[in-house]
Computed example of a mutant assay.
Amino acid sequence: MPGIFTISLDLELFWGVRDSRSFGDYEANLNGERDAILGILDMFEAHGIHATWATLGFLFFKDIAELKQHLPRVLPDYRHSQLSSYRYIDERTWGDDDAYHFAPETIELIRSRAGQEIGTHTFSHYYCLEEGQTIESFRADLQAAVAIAKDRGIPITSLVFPRNQGNPAYLPVLEELGIVCYRGNENASFYQPRNKREQSAWVRALRLVDAYVNLSGYNTYSLEECARSRPFNISASRFLRPYSRSLAPLESLRLHRIKRALHDAATGHRLFHLWWHPHNFGADVKQNLAFLQKILVYYNQLNQRYGMQPCNMGEVAALLECRHAG
């Protein structure tokens, strides 16, 4: 089996940052996000890349009125209520900013492109490790996400936990709802799932340094590792951090870090899983797309030399199913 290059993107618009950012301080990212998505899709098509777009259930609706007709019966009761997207729905004054919250046309654009899978990022950007929420409210939230996708003719088989808050106790719910794989976290201690309170400055600093210097290893995986249990854990290898003006002199280190891990996967017949949010690219679309282009050109070289293959999460899961059954 050749090496595998997997990409997943967390498609969430403002819902994914609304508890930590304001429109004002994130406006550039939000305004540039759709241009970034179009550029990413064109680049994927040019380089033959298959990817999973883990899409928030809320984005399937055309406006707030339609969304309110599909809210789940059981809602999360977070100890810190500002974490709840459902509370946000009720408390904000809705105006002419639907483009920051809803994207049915973008979802249709993505699914029209070859090799692109629509996965789920839960219905409401649900936090599985925050105090107060329960497995019952998680199940209701995820049921709503699967239902709206099904209503649009999209079967959901892949999931990405918001804020990477994977909760092992909740994995049986995925199987109940027909979700066969999820994106787990890297193995290093500073990547382990944490709730918001546990995200210390020290943890964030280690992750930042790891983007440029090899602290955590290559984080590539054999298919045997991924196939050990169901639902399948197709773990992350590297977060594609966005371009930073202040860190621009270190761009060559950031690229080298990714290329070395890709090479390890290609030569070792392993899987490399790159991920990011489309809104990460929104503030500096040109620079971010140029960096992605360098990664994809290098992937094409590995494809030609070692036969490395592009697979979205659903396609990886299909390969794992064969190994798990064996």
Rank of each mutant, 00 (worst) to 15 (best):
S189A: 10
H101G: 02
R92P: 00
E224S: 14
V213E: 01
D141E: 04
K294H: 12
S229G: 09
L262K: 13
V160C: 14
L250K: 08
A169F: 11
A54T: 03
P193H: 09
G166F: 14
R163A: 12
I49G: 05
P162M: 07
E224R: 14
P249E: 01
E33P: 02
F123Y: 06
G178I: 13
V146L: 04
I64W: 11
Q133V: 14
R21I: 01
K62G: 04
G307Q: 01
V285G: 05
F61Q: 00
K286C: 10
Y78W: 14
M1Y: 08
L9V: 08
P162I: 07
R270I: 06
A99R: 15
S158D: 04
H121D: 00
A51R: 05
A205F: 15
F123H: 07
H256D: 14
I49F: 10
P172D: 02
I37Y: 00
F14R: 01
S222L: 11
R21H: 13
Y127L: 15
P162V: 06
I4C: 02
D97K: 05
I49P: 11
E130C: 02
F232W: 04
N31K: 14
G115M: 09
G16H: 00
L171C: 03
T267G: 01
E176I: 11
R18F: 02
N312E: 02
E105A: 12
D42K: 12
K286P: 08
V316W: 05
W202E: 13
G314S: 03
F44H: 10
S158M: 07
D141V: 12
R323A: 11
F272A: 07
L159F: 09
V213H: 03
A145F: 01
S158W: 11
S235A: 15
R111F: 09
R111E: 10
M43P: 07
I7A: 10
P104H: 03
K286R: 15
L142C: 00
L59Y: 00
L129K: 13
Q301P: 04
D63P: 00
I49A: 05
V173S: 01
A325Y: 07
G57V: 00
L75E: 10
P278W: 04
I118Q: 08
E27F: 05
W53K: 04
E186G: 06
S229Q: 13
D141I: 11
T55H: 03
A318Q: 15
L83I: 10
R73P: 08
L177G: 05
F138Q: 05
T120P: 09
Q69I: 06
E130W: 04
F44G: 02
H256K: 12
H269F: 06
A265P: 06
S84D: 09
L289A: 12
G39I: 11
L59D: 00
L271S: 03
G119H: 01
D77Q: 15
I64G: 10
R139A: 14
P172Q: 02
K294A: 14
R323I: 15
E117D: 06
Q143N: 10
